[in-house]
């Protein structure tokens, strides 16, 4: 296990390093003035002054020199300053504010979707082929089939016109204005957790050890909660760390739609504005989150189910 953990950690670091390097090099292939001056500034600054600014910012240095400086700064936790989104503001400061908002909303949505979705899956299994199961399946099909932007629009119209909720996020009314974004974030995940919980539980119910348990006289409740749910939950668990970490990244669509000032819209804004340091930092962050999520998921699964091994000839994954 330790060997596997070290190996995976090493692979993760290399992956992150390669992604960071690729993003850095690709961005540097653009002419530096693209992400340094807007059109008004180009009009009013002389070429001499522009060159001076770029030189001072180190953007005219050879690429390897810039890259080395980037690595050194990154290792020290210095991700530079924003040039376009908020001039001269440290990137870490800008990101930290947004991480909090995305994490809060994402964690709430994750909690809701886990409880409601898994609960729905359990009840669908309990009442398999009955009305509740059909309603649950109907909800899942609806959520998956209708484009999310359409669902969000319906929720927005219903929430704002009928329930009188604020249409957009407001830092002065955080609770009320977060209801619709969190619901939208949770809506799709609820369907996901419900369908997978139901599927794994139905699979487990058909296994021999359950038949044996019934023969031994265990009650349905004992079988369902003592064995089926526990075993069905193991495959779902591996996605939890990634889901939780993903909340830090925010949701581009939901945040843009409800004007939530989180991380989801930030990368898109930074790319649009050519804010190079923010793009680099966010790419690094997202790469790290993705890699770490997968890694932690594997580790968590082995902890919950000792039958799963990750190393050696007998490795099951």
């Amino acid at each position: 296990m330790l060997k596997y953990t070290i190996k995976r950690l090493f692979q993760s670091v290399v992956t992150i390093f390669l992604i960071a390097t690729a993003v850095f090099v690709l961005i540097r292939m653009l002419p530096p003035e693209k992400f340094y001056f807007d059109s008004d500034e180009q009009m009013y600054l002389t070429d001499d002054v522009k060159e001076g600014i770029l030189r001072e910012a180190g953007l005219l240095d050879p690429l390897p020199e810039q890259l080395f400086r980037f690595y050194a700064d990154t290792l020290q936790g210095d991700f530079g300053i924003s040039r376009r989104i908020q001039r001269d503001a440290p990137v870490t400061k800008l990101i930290s504010k947004k991480v909090g908002i995305s994490l809060r909303n994402g964690a709430m949505a994750l909690g809701i979707s886990l409880v409601v979705g898994a609960g729905m899956g359990v009840f669908q299994t309990l009442y398999k082929d009955k009305l509740f199961d059909h309603i649950g399946t109907g909800y899942t099909v609806f959520v998956r089939a209708v484009p999310t932007i359409v669902s969000y629009s319906l929720i927005l119209v219903f929430g704002s016109k009928v329930l009188g909720l604020p249409s957009l996020y407001s830092s002065r009314k955080p609770f009320l204005s977060n209801i619709m974004p969190v619901f939208c974030l949770a809506m799709v995940s609820i369907a996901g957790y419900a369908i997978w919980t139901r599927r794994y539980m139905v699979d487990e119910l058909n296994k021999d050890y359950i038949k044996m348990a019934r023969i031994k006289g265990l009650s349905s409740r004992e079988i369902m909660f003592g064995h089926v749910l526990k075993n069905a939950f193991v495959p779902l668990v591996q996605y939890l760390p990634a889901s939780l970490l993903d909340t830090i990244g925010g949701s581009l669509l939901v945040e843009r739609f409800f004007s939530v000032p989180g991380m989801g819209t930030f990368l898109a804004d930074a790319i649009t504005a050519y804010d190079v340091n923010i793009v680099q930092t966010l790419s690094l962050l997202y790469a790290s989150l993705g890699v770490m999520g997968a890694f932690l998921g594997d580790v968590l699964m082995t902890m919950l189910d000792p039958r799963i091994t990750l190393t050696g000839k007998e490795a099951t994954r």
């Binding site: 830092s171 939530v260 000032p261 804004d269």
Partner: peptide, 10 residues
């Protein structure tokens, strides 16, 4: 008195 990039400004 309030500033959130991408959110609300007061």
């Amino acid at each position: 008195t309030d500033y959130e990039h991408g959110g609300e400004i007061v």
